[in-house]
Computed example of a mutant assay.
Amino acid sequence: MTKRRLVVGISGATGSIYATRLLERVREVPDVETHLVISPPGVLNIKYELDLDRQAVFDLADHVYNFRDVGSVLASGAFATAGMLILPCSMRTLAAVAHGFSDNLITRAADVHLKERRRLVLAVRETPFNLAHLRNMTQVTEMGGIVFPPLPAFYHHPKTIEEMVDHTVARLLALFDIDVGGPEWEGT
């Protein structure tokens, strides 16, 4: 069976809980494999926010790549994927993607997804937004990317942070036609 490849980049923004939970949920889907890249600030945030070391997160992925290895398969359009998700996406990473600065494997892989017209989702984490953030989000959107701030929904009456995270993760994965279940809006 050929598996769909999902590239996951973790940058140094807050919200690493979303990324680790997404990797856990994708493991439940037999026809999807994950290809993970974590920036050095992403590793620091994971340690600070979740008290996990990099190996614990690496163990959640099917394949792991070095952040500096811009010569890896993820840097080539010939490496077919179902898409890429940067979760969380820092404003630095957003700016690099918006302006084509492919100076590391996360931004290079994002550039490849844009040029190949593949799905690219940036789960931007910052508040409030300044004008540079908004312009960069607009630019990425105009290039075909999707900007998805991981904002919690409340229509499903979540009782825990985990329920809010799971809902957001399910919505993110749905953008790649990966179904992990979860509440859906059924109208009033």
Rank of each mutant, 00 (worst) to 15 (best):
residue 66 N to R: 14
residue 126 E to K: 01
residue 102 S to I: 06
residue 83 G to L: 07
residue 170 A to K: 15
residue 23 L to H: 07
residue 19 A to C: 02
residue 91 M to W: 07
residue 26 V to T: 05
residue 176 F to N: 02
residue 91 M to I: 13
residue 159 K to F: 13
residue 49 E to F: 04
residue 80 A to F: 06
residue 35 H to C: 01
residue 70 V to N: 15
residue 168 T to D: 07
residue 24 E to L: 09
residue 140 V to S: 04
residue 113 H to C: 12
residue 143 M to V: 11
residue 31 D to N: 13
residue 144 G to L: 11
residue 175 L to A: 05
residue 29 V to M: 08
residue 110 A to F: 00
residue 67 F to K: 03
residue 85 L to E: 13
residue 33 E to I: 01
residue 84 M to K: 12
residue 142 E to M: 10
residue 172 L to K: 12
residue 128 P to A: 05
residue 170 A to I: 07
residue 7 V to L: 07
residue 72 S to L: 02
residue 70 V to Y: 10
residue 132 A to M: 14
residue 155 Y to K: 12
residue 10 I to V: 07
residue 161 I to H: 14
residue 148 F to W: 08
residue 24 E to R: 08
residue 140 V to A: 00
residue 108 R to I: 02
residue 42 G to S: 13
residue 36 L to S: 07
residue 114 L to Q: 13
residue 33 E to F: 02
residue 160 T to R: 09
residue 142 E to Q: 09
residue 131 L to V: 06
residue 172 L to Q: 15
residue 56 A to V: 06
residue 148 F to D: 02
residue 177 D to V: 01
residue 19 A to Q: 06
residue 97 V to C: 05
residue 164 M to L: 10
residue 81 T to V: 05
residue 102 S to L: 06
residue 73 V to Q: 06
residue 69 D to C: 04
residue 170 A to S: 15
residue 154 F to S: 00
residue 131 L to K: 14
residue 24 E to H: 06
residue 22 L to F: 03
residue 106 I to A: 14
residue 41 P to D: 05
residue 22 L to S: 01
residue 105 L to K: 03
residue 49 E to P: 02
residue 64 V to N: 13
residue 114 L to W: 13
residue 172 L to A: 12
residue 52 L to R: 05
residue 125 R to T: 12
residue 149 P to R: 02
residue 6 L to F: 13
residue 124 V to C: 10
residue 187 G to C: 08
residue 77 G to Y: 03
residue 97 V to T: 09
residue 104 N to A: 10
residue 13 A to L: 00
residue 129 F to I: 06
residue 121 V to A: 09
residue 165 V to A: 10
residue 156 H to R: 04
residue 61 A to V: 00
residue 146 I to Y: 01
residue 124 V to F: 03
residue 168 T to A: 08
residue 90 S to F: 04
residue 175 L to W: 04
residue 4 R to N: 13
residue 177 D to C: 14
residue 42 G to M: 12
residue 136 N to C: 11
residue 53 D to R: 13
residue 116 E to L: 00
residue 118 R to E: 04
residue 134 L to G: 09
residue 35 H to R: 09
residue 100 G to L: 01
residue 22 L to R: 07
residue 97 V to D: 04
residue 157 H to G: 03
residue 123 A to F: 04
residue 43 V to K: 14
residue 121 V to N: 05
residue 165 V to S: 15
